[in-house]
Structure formats: C-alpha cells, structure tokens
Nucleic acid binder design. Structure first.
Lengths: 132, 132
DNA sequence: TTGCAAATGAGAACTACTCTCTATAGCGAC
DNA sequence: GTCGCTATAGAGAGTAGTTCTCATTTGCAA
C-alpha cells in the first residue's frame, strides 16, 4: 500500500474505495466508514487519501467549491479525464483529447517548465436531472 | 461596472486589475491595494471580484491548493485557457483545443446535461526557474 | 517478547472565504 | 445644494475543508 505498514484503517479505506465507483469527498468517505462500523479518525482518512493520491493509487480532483474528491480509478496509470455529476458524484471516465503535444508546444513557446494540466468535466447526470 | 454605483473601492480594484497582467488571489489584491494607500476591506475585495467574475469582467480560476485567482483578460468573452506560473502567477493566454464538440458528444453519450469543463495549465516560468 | 519507528486520533490550528449587521455614501429627485 | 432612499462598505464573527501537533498505540523485524 502506501507506507510500510498494513493497518486496519488503511485496509478499510482501500476496501471501501474498491466498492465505490464514484468520486467522494474525504468527509463522505469518513462517514461511510463510520456507517460500516469502522471508527477511523478524520485526520487519518485525509492522510491516507492524500498519500494514496500521491502514490497514484487513487485519482483526486477539486470541485468548483474547493473540495477534494477521491476515487479509485479503473486505469490509474493511463491518462484520462472525468465527467462528474455535480450533485451525486457519479463519475464516467472519458478519453480527453491528447494534450501532451499541445502541452509540450505551449511550454516551449513560453519558456515554461514542469507544465501540468487539469481538465475535468462537471455536469448533471440523468437521474439527478429527472429528480428535480 | 457591476451593480449600479461607482464607488472609490470598485474604481480602485478595477484600476489595479488593469495594471496587472497576471493572476492574483483576492488576498494579494487586497495587499496590493493597501500598498497603494487604498484601505479597502477584505470582504469588499472578495465581493467585488466575485461580482466581476460573474459578470464576465474578470477571469477566475482555482489553483491546486483551492485558492481563487483573478485576472482581467484581454479577451474576456472569447473562450480561452491559461498557462499560469505556479510561483509568481505570471500568465499567458493560450488557445486550447476546441472542446465544444467533445463536450457535446460526451454529454449526449452519458446522458449528462449542463456540462462545463475546466482546462488550465500550471508550470514554472523561465525567471522563476532560473531564480531557483 | 521486545523495541522502535510508523501510524493513529483528538482536538487545536489554519486558510480561504462568506455572512451579518450597522454605518456610510452614491445618485436621482427636488 | 440638500434630501432621502438604498446600494455598498467594513469589521469582525462564522464556516467549511483541511492540516498540524503531540501523546498514545501498534505493526513488525529481530
């Protein structure tokens, strides 16, 4: 997993993420764990999710309101983007345009290095739209 | 400008943004105003920038750390993206790929509506790279 | 079984932002 | 010019989300 030790907390967080298809906030994950009877500190949830995101084991993104969302992705290593429902978090992986060459050319053109990009799509999914 | 009244505060914020090419946070703008002798409340800076962003008078984006940055753009109405230096905020407007048709097709494919997208580039500019 | 560093948890702290409420001040009418 | 209405401003409290601190616990190699 992340560090060197396998703990009850990390195992529980990993297991929860495996059974969860959609993006969830750290707070939601904390609540879901509590509902499963896993009493894990919020700080530990944040720490673990952060470490997993750094290790590339989960994908993370930020909503327009500044909240971080996490999700275990089917294809963690390959580059992809997400279409996320802004009300329920339902997530679809989408194959974005290939931006690698664009990134390289704009970086070179303007003398920038270490250029990263963020591309995410937010919308309202069918069931949330009809629920309204 | 935004609402109906022209106030000292709004004029000062507008003038500052005009002389500023790069993305700045609300807090930085507040500090810059104070350095110019404009004693304007932080809440007013936030309110004004928020209103300007809603009105399309300034562009806003969020950094990876969840901070909102603001900038008066050369082409406010036309759709464009930004390459932003993560240490000094230096900004270049870039012509991104045309995502409109992609957005429409993925929205239709997955039954999503009101789909928006965010695409920003963050890097290190030449002077910040050599300063290190 | 022991020792020790990694990991946890509770709660304080922090950051960025928003709200509340009273005072101030644009600006159209006179 | 001045009056009056009400949009706007400012101070400071409040909020949400996240991170830090530090004492305690625990995984795991020896």
């Amino acid at each position: 997993m992340i560090g060197q030790r396998v703990t009850r907390q990390r195992t529980a967080i990993g297991a929860l993420l495996d059974g969860l298809g959609d993006f969830r906030s750290a707070q939601q994950i904390h609540t879901l764990l509590a509902e499963r009877g896993e009493d894990i500190g919020l700080a530990t949830v944040y720490r673990t999710l952060g470490a997993m995101a750094t290790a590339g084991e989960v994908d993370s993104l930020r909503t327009g309101t500044g909240e971080s969302l996490f999700r275990r992705c089917a294809r963690p290593s390959t580059h992809h983007h997400h279409l996320v429902c802004r009300s329920c978090g339902r997530t679809v992986e989408v194959q974005g345009p290939n931006l690698e060459s664009l990134v390289r050319s704009i970086a070179a053109e303007h003398g920038f290095t270490d250029v990263e990009h963020t591309l995410e799509f937010f919308g309202t999914c069918q069931s949330c739209a009809s629920a309204r």
